[in-house]
Design a protein around this nucleic acid. Structure first.
Length: 440
DNA sequence: TCTGGGGTCCTAGGACCC
DNA sequence: TCTGGGGTCCTAGGACCC
């Protein structure tokens, strides 16, 4: 019983009810209020009407027309969450937050060590829950067990405002009757696949051999679900997990088609990502553009730089270039820009700084320096003596791939050259369209 | 008016290297 | 000349989680 999982009940809605007494006892739904919003959190009163997280707001409104609909106050939720996490860290320093409203605690890191009896666990958890209500005004459900898997399942069983302790040896009797969706990693697609083999409960799953499960679901997924179905879970509670990507995305109230507008939006998203990177002291090598089309198909296009960057100009140039590879004529409902391959050092040195300061257009200079020092970087404009104007699509291992196109024929052909091809040289970038956003 | 925003992990194929 | 396997990096897509 060394792992504790805590989950705040209907967190966002509870905070709203706490701060506005007139909402108490009433259905409260927090989520996006625009035409394409979805439910983030529904209070228990709203759940009575069948409203659930991730449901479209339009459906929520038809199911529960009398609810209070709120867009959410994330700064407040973050502050409440910080109080809760601090309380957990006071219990044991080994705390792994999963989101604002959820965390694992490794009780082995506690001053008194792993509690030795169920009675001790109950006392500890009861004190924790009452402290949290006192300090924050919202209730928490807690599960305690020997593993992350069972602690999380226990807190789910405890909801709302309860406590479940799984005694050693009783795991399978709790686990096996549950639907497979109770296991982490079983979503709609996996559940549907397994249902075709008559697997509905975790107990059913436990009777499938590991090799059959691997054949059905793939190596990693098959093996891990096989183990979880037997309550075998030795994943450690990990306090410091480094982030692997940073991204920003926007869904538009209506589908957009104007290419200049789309390019300007991508540039703006890149600015937001860059700001987040700088704030976090991070930089990254791979830039990804995400595009969701009118029919909800989702595309991604990415390019990897020779060195990490947090420079808004580089991110913006590369991201807008990636957009050129996407056919947006049918309409776009979402655009996103992400950066991965993160480093916690910022790509910078005296050489780059001096050159950038001396330049009229620092973006050009940064690209030129990147080229001189590290090779061709994606998004860079180039000109080839034979093929004409193009831009760098990718590079590495002695080659550089260039996409050639004109305004009338995007996307054009892609050709590959040796990095030292004398016919190939950097070219001045085109003028970036200024502010068609005003037209939106 | 179906379907947000921020993430993580995995797979598969191709290029390239040894 | 043909055949080959392992490992890594990169890209694209998909499933999943809160």
């Amino acid at each position: 019983m060394r792992v504790l999982h805590l989950d705040l009940d209907a967190f966002f809605a509870s905070v709203e009810q706490r701060d506005k007494p007139s909402l108490r006892g009433k259905p409260v739904i927090v989520g996006g209020l625009g035409p394409r919003g979805v439910v983030s959190t529904a209070s228990y009163e709203a759940r009575t009407s069948g409203v659930r997280s991730a449901m479209s707001m339009s459906e929520a409104r038809s199911r529960c027309p009398h609810a209070a609909y709120l867009s959410g106050r994330f700064a407040v939720y973050r502050a409440v969450s910080a109080v809760v996490m601090a309380r957990l860290r006071a219990l044991s320093p080994v705390v792994e937050p999963l989101s604002l409203d959820e965390a694992f605690v490794d009780l082995a890191g506690r001053a008194g060590g792993v509690p030795s009896s169920v009675a001790e666990v109950r006392t500890l958890a009861a004190e924790l829950r009452s402290t949290i209500v006192d300090e924050t005004g919202v209730t928490a459900s807690v599960g305690v067990a020997g593993s992350k898997l069972m602690a999380k399942i226990a807190s789910e069983q405890a909801k709302p405002d309860g406590l479940v302790v799984v005694e050693p040896g009783t795991e399978l009797e709790l686990l096996h009757p549950l639907p497979i969706r109770a296991l982490p990693g079983v979503g709609p697609a996996t559940a549907a696949r397994l249902a075709r083999f008559g697997v509905k409960t975790v107990g059913d799953l436990a009777r499938i051999t590991e090799s059959d499960l691997v054949d059905l679901l793939g190596e990693a997924h098959g093996r891990s679900l096989h183990r979880l179905s037997l309550a075998q879970d030795d994943r450690p509670v990990s306090a410091e997990r480094e982030s692997k990507s940073v991204s920003v995305e926007d869904t538009f109230d209506r589908d957009l088609t104007d290419p200049a507008l789309l390019a300007a939006i991508v540039a703006r998203l890149a600015e937001r990502v860059a700001a987040r990177l700088v704030e976090a002291g991070l930089s990254g090598r791979t830039i990804t553009l995400k595009t969701r089309l009118h029919d909800f198909t989702t595309l991604s296009r990415s390019a990897t730089l020779p060195a990490p960057t947090d420079d808004v100009r580089v991110l913006s140039r590369v991201a807008t270039r990636l957009l050129d590879d996407v056919d947006t004529t049918g309409g776009v409902r979402l655009l996103g820009v992400g950066v991965s391959g993160l480093s916690d050092w910022v790509q910078d040195d005296l050489f780059v700084s001096e050159r950038a300061e001396a330049a009229d257009d620092p973006a050009d200079q940064v690209e030129e320096v990147l080229h001189e020092r590290r090779g061709w970087s994606p998004g860079m404009d180039v000109v080839h003596a034979v093929h004409g104007a193009g831009w760098v699509w990718g590079s590495g291992r002695g080659r550089v791939t260039v996409r050639f196109e004109t305004a009338s024929t995007p996307p054009g052909p892609v050709r590959t050259f040796a990095v030292d091809d004398p016919e190939l040289s950097p070219a001045p970038p085109p003028v970036i369209p200024t502010d068609p956003l005003a037209a939106a």
